[in-house]
Amino acid sequence: MRIGELSRRSGVPVPTIKYYVREGLLPAGELTSPNQARYGDGHERRLRLIRALLDVGGLSLSAIADVLRTIDDPGQPVHEVLGAAANRITSAEAAEPGEAGPESAEAREEVAALLARRGWRVSEDNPAARSLAGVLAALHRAGHGGFTELLDVYADAAEPVAHADLDYVRRRVAREDLVESVVVGTVLGEAMFGALRRLAHVEASAGVFGETGGAEEGRAAG
């Protein structure tokens, strides 16, 4: 296909496609004449992935380039490819909140204990682990350190969701499709999980505090 058709099919403007080619994010098309090139389905898939990483994942172009280099390395296991994408997204979503202090040290210890207790094969330096430590430190500073008693309850809920996410990802064939699934699942999946949690709060509130309170909370939340 010509670049104009590639633009129509992908929704990416022609000047942007040319920019991605210049920056090495998108392979150049096959030259058919000095001023014409032909593009294939692989170019369309790569453009879709770039836009997902940019628009949904919130990654910078330099971070996207890092992820794409990992994808294009045939020696990288799929687990490493998915990890590179997820870690970049986690880093882009939010830096570790909070400042250094006793709360931060305590929070890091709590995260380390959680990982050991659950037997999760995750480094304490993982961006998600650092983000969790930041949240726990903020809870301690706000005087709600007792909320950490719910860590395992949250972990119990997160594990089946993670496995369901990966079952969805496993049905993808191309490495680009795998990474795109991780982007969508990490960003939009978390938003979906958060909305479902709020709905569950309304239902639980109705059961604990009475139907009237639950209905009023539901209206307020809406």
Rank of each mutant, 00 (worst) to 15 (best):
M192C: 10
G83A: 08
R88W: 11
A200W: 00
R170P: 14
Y39S: 02
T186C: 00
L114G: 05
V14G: 03
A116P: 13
V169F: 09
S60Y: 11
A28Q: 14
G185Q: 10
L196P: 09
S181Q: 07
P13C: 05
D66V: 14
H201V: 10
E203R: 13
A157W: 05
T16C: 07
A65S: 11
I50C: 01
S131Y: 11
H144A: 15
A155E: 09
A162L: 05
V122Y: 00
L31M: 14
L31T: 14
R88T: 12
I3R: 04
A100I: 07
E99I: 03
G210T: 04
R121T: 10
A142I: 01
V56L: 08
P160N: 08
L49P: 04
T90H: 08
V208L: 09
Q76V: 11
V202G: 03
E106D: 11
V21M: 11
R117S: 13
G42V: 05
G58H: 01
A85F: 08
G29W: 05
N35R: 10
E190Y: 02
A138R: 09
H201F: 07
A204P: 04
E180H: 10
Y39R: 04
G134L: 00
V122N: 02
R2K: 13
T70V: 15
R22D: 13
R48M: 04
E159K: 04
I17N: 02
L31E: 15
G143Y: 06
E96N: 06
T70N: 10
R197V: 03
M1A: 14
A52H: 01
A63H: 10
R88H: 15
A116Q: 15
D41L: 10
G119I: 09
N35K: 08
A138L: 13
V111W: 02
E103D: 12
R69S: 13
K18H: 04
E159Q: 06
A215W: 12
L31W: 09
I89W: 10
N126V: 02
D73T: 06
S7Q: 03
L151H: 12
E217C: 00
E180G: 12
V208M: 04
A86C: 11
G98C: 08
Y19T: 12
D66L: 13
E149N: 12
I89T: 08
L150K: 02
R46A: 02
V183D: 04
H163P: 00
V179Y: 01
K18C: 03
D177T: 07
L196A: 15
P15I: 00
R69A: 15
V81N: 01
A116Y: 15
E96I: 04
D152E: 15
R117P: 05
N126K: 03
G11A: 13
H79A: 11
E23I: 08
P27K: 00
A142R: 07
V184A: 02
E180M: 11
L136Q: 05
A116L: 15
D177M: 05
P102C: 00
G75M: 01
R46I: 01
S7E: 05
D72V: 09
N87T: 08
V135D: 15
L54R: 15
T186R: 03
L139G: 06
H144V: 13
H140K: 15
Y20R: 08
Q76M: 12
A164W: 00
G4T: 13
L188S: 10
A65Y: 01
G4F: 02
G98F: 06
G189C: 07
G75V: 00
